[in-house]
C-alpha cells in the first residue's frame, strides 16, 4: 500500500464531526444538469435520509460520494479527504471505510453467497481464510440466513438478496454505509426486518445515508433530511424542520399527499 493510500485509510473523525460533506456538487449529461450545486453534511453516527421523486439524482449523488462517478463541479469530502481529487488507488483505499447497499442488489452472479460476502474481506487482505469463513457465517446468522453460503444469487428471493447485499456492505464493519433504496420492491415484513438492521447499524455508531421511498419506515431512523427534485435541493434540515416546512412541494412529499 502506498503512503497516500495509507493516509487515506488511517484517518480520524474530523473535529467538527462531519464525516460526509458535499459542496456544490453538479453533474451534467449532455449540457443538462442532473445534479445542480447540491450541498449536504452528515455528522458522525447520524443517518441522513435522501429523499425525492424518481430520477431526481439521488442514486447519482451517492455514487459521486463513493467516488464511483466524478462530478463536473463541486467537491465531496469524506473525513475531510477530498474524494474528487483522489487517484484510483487512493479511492480503492478510501472505499475500505465505506459500505454500500445497491438498489438492485448488485450481487456478483458468478459467485456464491459466501464468496460475495467474503470479497470485501479478501480485498482488505487482513484476515485469514478461516476468520473470513467464520465472519461470513456470523453475519449471515445475524440476518437470519444461516447456512446459505453455497447458494448462488439466482436461487435467492428478493428479500434474501437484499439481506445478502446488506451483509456484504457491512461485513468489514465500515464506519460509513450508504443504503440505496434498501427496501425497494420488498414486502412489509421483509422491509421491517431491513429497517431493524439499519437501526442496529445506527445504534453501533455507523454514519449513513439512506435513500428510500418508504418514508414511514425511515422516519424514525433519520436525523437529517435532504429532499431533491430534478437534481436541485428543495429541502435540507432535521426532522422537526421538515415537519414544519411550509413549502408546498416539500409538505406534499413529506406527508404523502396527492398533488
Amino acid at each position: 500500500m502506498s503512503a497516500a493510500s495509507k493516509q487515506v485509510t488511517h484517518v480520524e473523525v474530523p473535529r467538527d464531526g462531519v464525516r460526509i460533506r458535499c459542496q456544490g456538487v453538479s453533474k451534467y449529461y449532455r449540457r443538462t444538469a442532473v445534479l445542480d450545486a447540491v450541498d449536504l453534511e452528515v455528522r458522525d453516527g447520524t443517518m441522513l435520509g435522501l429523499i425525492g421523486p424518481g430520477a431526481a439524482g439521488k442514486s447519482l449523488l451517492v455514487k459521486i460520494i463513493c467516488g464511483l462517478v466524478a462530478p463536473d463541479e463541486g467537491h465531496v469530502f469524506i473525513d475531510d479527504i477530498d474524494v474528487t481529487r483522489l487517484r484510483e488507488r487512493e479511492l480503492q483505499a478510501l472505499r475500505m471505510r465505506l459500505g454500500m447497499v445497491f438498489q438492485n442488489y448488485a450481487l456478483f452472479d458468478f459467485m456464491n453467497v459466501g464468496e460475495n460476502i467474503a470479497l470485501p474481506l479478501r480485498m482488505e487482505g487482513r484476515s485469514s481464510e478461516t476468520s473470513i469463513r467464520n465472519r461470513v457465517a456470523e453475519v449471515l446468522e445475524q440476518v437470519a440466513l444461516p447456512g446459505i453460503q453455497d447458494k448462488m444469487p439466482r436461487e435467492l428471493s428478493g428479500g434474501m438478496k437484499k439481506r445478502v447485499s446488506f451483509v456484504r456492505a457491512v461485513v468489514r464493519r465500515p464506519p460509513i454505509v450508504i443504503y440505496d433504496d434498501p427496501t425497494g420492491g420488498l414486502d412489509p415484513v421483509t422491509s421491517a426486518k431491513i429497517f431493524r438492521l439499519l437501526s442496529d447499524m445506527k445504534a453501533q455508531g455507523t454514519t449513513s445515508i439512506t435513500i428510500s421511498h418508504d418514508l414511514d419506515g425511515i422516519r424514525p431512523l433519520c436525523d437529517q433530511w435532504l429532499l431533491i427534485e430534478h437534481g436541485k435541493t428543495l429541502f435540507s434540515g432535521d426532522t422537526s424542520a421538515i415537519d414544519q416546512c411550509e413549502t408546498p412541494y416539500v409538505r406534499q412529499f413529506w406527508r404523502g399527499e396527492p398533488a
Partner: peptide, 17 residues
C-alpha cells in the same frame, strides 16, 4: 452486463478495481 447491473460498482465498493 456486470456494468449495467451495478456489479462493477459493487466490485469497486468491495475494494477491487
Amino acid at each position: 452486463s456486470m456494468v449495467v447491473t451495478e456489479q462493477v460498482d459493487a466490485l469497486q465498493m468491495s475494494g477491487a478495481h
